[in-house]
Simulated scan of single mutants.
Amino acid sequence: MYYCCGVTEKGIMPHNEDALLIKDSVIDSGSAEKNVDVPFIAAVSDGVSGERSGELASRMCLELIRDMGYSSDMKLDEELLAIHRKLAEYSESDPEIHNMQATLCGIAVDENNNLLTFNVGDSRLYRYRGGRIRQISRDQSLVQLLIDEGAITSEERSTHVHRNIIFPVFGNVKSAPQIDTVKLEGGMEYGDLLLLCTDGLSDYVSVLDIEEVLEMPKPLQARLDILVKKALDNGSKDNITVIAVVYYE
């Protein structure tokens, strides 16, 4: 069994272009927590800023994932690419929502407890183990490419002029996304916590701050609420969504 909890908050924005999925529940406002058995998927999605109907894209993306009925028999990357095509085709049917797009980051756990991670865009997956956070996903963004090439440092990421430029994501009508789907190296051990979040959190709350909050002797849902408040207090100008996943026997 797994315990999952999450929260999605519009912050200072007029509406929420983020959404989260925990097994069979898609949420675009407020919080949720539940114990879930395998198989299941947990994911966050962020409607791309500047594109039309980002809130529709993120919710529709997660609803399609929820409805696909994940199991070990599936080729997850192919199923996710099919969902991208459905979003792109749907957006081309109506000028009002043309080219609606969304990032996607999540985990898929099959009936045998095998855990795959998947990512498109700049939402993130972290693993918290032994009091330390490690980023598992890799940002699909221009600044990450510049960091990889040594052109800028990681510390320059948050202030770089091109920090909001990401590679093609779900629903892009011109280019298909590159879906990073990999088995979680090292799996999950007792005491591990997986943290999924959109950039409204990761751009405004440091890894050290995340570690400090996760160490607090408080219920997990309360710790997520504290992370969201920290992002807002630090000036987050985006929607904020975060999910925590813990395994227990």
Score class of each variant (00 low, 15 high):
152 I>S: 03
187 G>M: 01
153 T>G: 12
172 N>Y: 07
156 E>V: 09
135 Q>N: 03
139 D>W: 00
181 T>G: 11
184 L>H: 10
171 G>M: 02
172 N>R: 08
170 F>I: 11
183 K>D: 12
165 I>D: 00
184 L>N: 06
180 D>L: 15
144 Q>P: 04
183 K>S: 14
174 K>W: 05
188 M>T: 10
166 I>Q: 07
169 V>Y: 03
137 S>I: 06
164 N>G: 05
136 I>R: 00
136 I>S: 04
169 V>I: 13
136 I>Y: 03
181 T>L: 15
157 R>H: 00
140 Q>V: 10
155 E>R: 02
135 Q>I: 04
167 F>W: 09
140 Q>L: 04
159 T>Q: 12
156 E>W: 03
178 Q>C: 14
144 Q>N: 06
151 A>N: 05
148 D>W: 06
137 S>V: 05
171 G>L: 08
173 V>A: 09
164 N>P: 09
179 I>P: 00
142 L>H: 10
156 E>I: 03
148 D>R: 05
181 T>Q: 15
183 K>L: 15
176 A>F: 14
136 I>Q: 02
147 I>E: 02
152 I>R: 02
143 V>H: 06
156 E>G: 03
147 I>P: 00
138 R>A: 05
161 V>L: 08
180 D>A: 15
145 L>P: 03
145 L>S: 06
174 K>F: 10
148 D>H: 07
161 V>T: 09
149 E>A: 10
175 S>R: 15
183 K>H: 13
171 G>S: 07
142 L>W: 09
187 G>Y: 04
145 L>R: 04
157 R>V: 07
163 R>E: 01
166 I>W: 11
152 I>D: 01
175 S>C: 15
180 D>Q: 09
151 A>K: 14
168 P>V: 03
141 S>I: 08
150 G>M: 02
154 S>Q: 11
179 I>F: 08
165 I>E: 10
162 H>A: 13
169 V>S: 10
139 D>I: 06
137 S>G: 08
163 R>M: 00
177 P>L: 05
148 D>E: 09
145 L>N: 07
169 V>E: 06
163 R>Y: 00
137 S>F: 01
142 L>E: 11
185 E>D: 12
188 M>V: 13
176 A>Y: 14
149 E>P: 01
135 Q>M: 10
164 N>W: 11
140 Q>N: 11
154 S>A: 06
141 S>A: 08
171 G>I: 10
178 Q>E: 14
137 S>Q: 04
181 T>H: 14
153 T>F: 05
185 E>L: 13
149 E>Y: 07
158 S>R: 05
173 V>M: 09
136 I>M: 07
184 L>I: 15
177 P>W: 06
169 V>R: 15
180 D>W: 10
159 T>A: 09
153 T>D: 10
146 L>F: 03
186 G>W: 14
167 F>E: 12
166 I>S: 07
187 G>C: 07
